[in-house]
Design a protein around this nucleic acid. Structure first.
Lengths: 194, 194
DNA sequence: CGACACATGTAACACGTTACATGATTTG
DNA sequence: CAAATCATGTAACGTGTTACATGTGTCG
């Protein structure tokens, strides 16, 4: 449910065509993942099937634009702001995407994530840490430590992210990224002359 | 590729029937995830299709046993010991499973994980941390910090896991879990008389 | 012209998830 | 008998991944 929601969130900024979504996706996720182009068209078909996006116009260069429906806008909004991310990875995606979206309350989202992560960590730490006395308990202890370390990491990351956000605000950095306006040029790229 | 490999690793300990695999899976992963039974049969079919397991005998109670093929044994072995887990989650699964398997060199696996994680963290930290001056850089910085925090968590977890393993060895805890021998009883469970 | 990036799409497949059907067995 | 668990399976669906086909426009 990740690519799907990310694309929907981008489309909520305005109509895009498929190839463009790939660029926007990478800009807004720190270039962590690169999307196979085919998957974009796949996902657009599925979003359309579910009534979250519609085909819009085709421009004079043949770009096929899609736009969110009302349903899609609500869904994107909910994905960004409601509920609690189930995994660290999902939290990252949501916050990175939210930080680039005008109107998204990244600071609020961050606080909600932190509350959830704190709670999660508290629950994990609640169990008594008597040393494992069987192979089964040992495996469980190893897995439990992993979840604890993950929750701790999430909290530390949220602190650093908050610092980044407030520093950026202080420096007057405009957080929100509008859809890119520079039109990619087709054809073989000019040779680098460095 | 996770359920698949875990089931294969369990089967490399000896023939199992489907429902049994569910129990073994949960014992060996700290009960983190509970598997829908249907998925077991699904996965067994796919493993059989790929020549990694075979149907074996059916016992007098109707339990349908599966056993690994030679290919399957090699694949399980490789999954546990070769290569480097791509994600934190995969590292957890592998180490927890390996810790319960006789003949698996958990300590060796752990050292390899640590080397990979150290390297990964070093690469992530290499980039200059000049404060982001655009929304795009901000998103990238947030994502990067997440990856760094995750890598740090993995290292800390590996330290704790190593401590758990060596403490268990010192305490004489038998790490390896053989396939459970207690036969589950069918039928409605006896009422708790606490 | 040939290489290469932009651009759209199709088809097949992998894995995971869930709902459902079916039946045996044991307890209350 | 009714309820609950053990146990096997089937069918459908969702997302992600990849390979492939096709075509356009530009640079060298």
């Amino acid at each position: 449910m990740s690519v799907r929601h990310n694309l929907l969130a981008i489309l909520s900024l305005g109509p895009c065509y498929g190839y463009q979504l790939r660029t926007e996706y990478e800009r807004r996720t720190g270039g962590a993942r690169t999307l196979n182009v085919g998957q974009i068209y796949n996902t657009l078909d599925r979003l359309e099937r579910d009534g979250l996006v519609q085909r819009a116009h085709t421009d004079d260069q043949g770009h096929v634009y899609y736009q969110v429906t009302d349903d899609g806008r609500v869904t994107a909004e909910r994905w960004l702001h409601e509920g609690v991310p189930a995994t660290f990875d999902e939290a990252i995606e949501r916050l990175a995407m939210a930080s680039t979206i005008a109107g998204a309350d990244a600071a609020h989202l961050l606080r909600r994530h932190r509350a959830a992560a704190t709670d999660h960590l508290r629950r994990l730490s609640a169990r008594p840490a008597s040393p494992p006395s069987s192979g089964e308990e040992l495996a469980a202890a190893i897995a439990l430590e992993a979840r604890i370390a993950g929750a701790e990491a999430e909290l530390r990351w949220l602190d650093r992210a908050e610092a980044l956000l407030s520093r950026a605000a202080h420096d007057g950095v405009t957080r929100e990224l509008p859809l890119s306006t520079d039109v990619p040029k087709r054809g073989r790229p000019a040779r680098l002359t460095s």
